[in-house]
């Protein structure tokens, strides 16, 4: 289990993720950011809980909804903000934007604009670790929608037959854009399909940081012990629309309200308070600090230089 200090840090990361994506949502609403973005608000416990179980040297792959994974993994919000504003100092030098934030040398192998697009990459990392005899693992985040793509079936099988050190972490947030998981699958739970590939599968409460942490830690241990992949399904919910534009026609306000009552930040903060690890007003204080930190990041990013035009022609080949 994690120390009090580490647990407080996890709360901080969740707050930072929420502040970041709420800020980005506002910036889109004001028309101040180009393109599109997908918000992680509501799902913070998944990224923070799972990433907390990683060790130095482990890697993650992310999705189109990647800000939370990146912040949980420790990416710098200043450089993320700069990327969203298309600046030269952003993680992708302004060439990637929200859907492509990556820090490969640190082990964050990239957000991904293609649903399911990173599942093969995670297996490739697992393959490299295994062949090189390294004690490292790959944590692969993907949504319920990705499970509908053929690549999920192929990669589950490859990882299982070759016992790759990969943890498949499905964020079942109930929808793939407007499609409810109830319409997308004839069989639930999603974790149930693990059996068909010969790996363990488990469904956990994705609004409960400690549950996610526990499941990820166990799966990572299996991966490191050479026992192969695990499929973890975290049951969670995205509070905001699919992307910057979404009229929420496919769900009810009531449903959103009910999920918000299980808020992962409040739940975890409540636990810390019960344990005496967080003082009475501290959550509020941390929250405002997180919003301030994100405001600063975007203010700073706004002053960063634009990339040079000719950089658009560079980096096609190594």
């Amino acid at each position: 289990m994690k120390s009090t200090e580490e647990r407080r840090e996890m709360l901080w990361k969740m707050l930072l993720i929420r502040a970041f994506d709420e800020k980005v949502n506002d910036l889109y609403a004001e028309g101040r950011v180009h393109g599109t973005a997908h918000f992680y608000v509501g799902q913070e416990a998944v990224a923070v809980g799972a990433v907390a179980a990683l060790k130095e040297g482990d890697v993650i792959t992310s999705t189109h909804r990647g800000h939370g994974h990146a912040i949980a993994f420790g990416l710098d919000v200043d450089r993320m903000a700069a990327e969203l504003l298309g600046k030269a100092t952003g993680y992708c030098r302004g060439k990637g934007g929200s859907m492509h934030i990556a820090d490969v040398s640190a082990g964050m192998l990239g957000a991904n604009g293609i649903v399911g697009g990173s599942m093969g990459i995670a297996c490739g990392a697992g393959w490299a670790f295994k062949r090189r005899g390294q004690d490292r693992a790959a944590l692969c985040f993907f949504g319920d929608g990705a499970v509908q793509e053929g690549i999920s079936s192929e990669t589950f099988n490859l990882a299982a037959i070759w016992k790759l050190p990969v943890v498949f972490l499905c964020e079942n947030n109930q929808y793939a854009m407007s499609l409810s998981v109830r319409k997308a699958f004839a069989v639930e739970p999603i974790s149930g399909r693990a059996a068909a590939y010969g790996m363990p599968g488990e469904t956990v409460d994705g609004m409960d940081l400690e549950e996610v942490y526990r499941a990820a830690a166990a799966a990572l241990k299996r991966a490191r012990d050479g026992e192969g992949p695990t499929l973890i399904e975290t049951v969670t919910y995205r509070y905001l629309g699919h992307s910057k534009s979404d009229a929420n026609l496919y769900r009810t306000r009531e449903e959103i309200r009910q999920w918000r009552e299980m808020d992962p930040i409040e739940r975890f903060a409540g636990k810390l308070q019960e344990e005496g690890a967080l003082a009475e007003n501290e959550l509020q204080e941390m929250e405002s600090r997180a919003y301030r930190r994100i405001d600063e990041a975007f203010e700073k990013a706004a002053k960063e230089p634009e990339p040079e035009l000719k950089s658009a022609l560079e980096d096609v080949y190594a």
């Binding site: 180009h34 990327e83 298309g86 658009a312």
Partner: peptide, 15 residues
């Protein structure tokens, strides 16, 4: 240009 489409607005227009 023979490149993927970059995100930055000016870069995108440039290619």
């Amino acid at each position: 240009a023979d490149v993927p489409i970059p995100y930055n607005r000016r870069l995108e227009a440039y290619v």
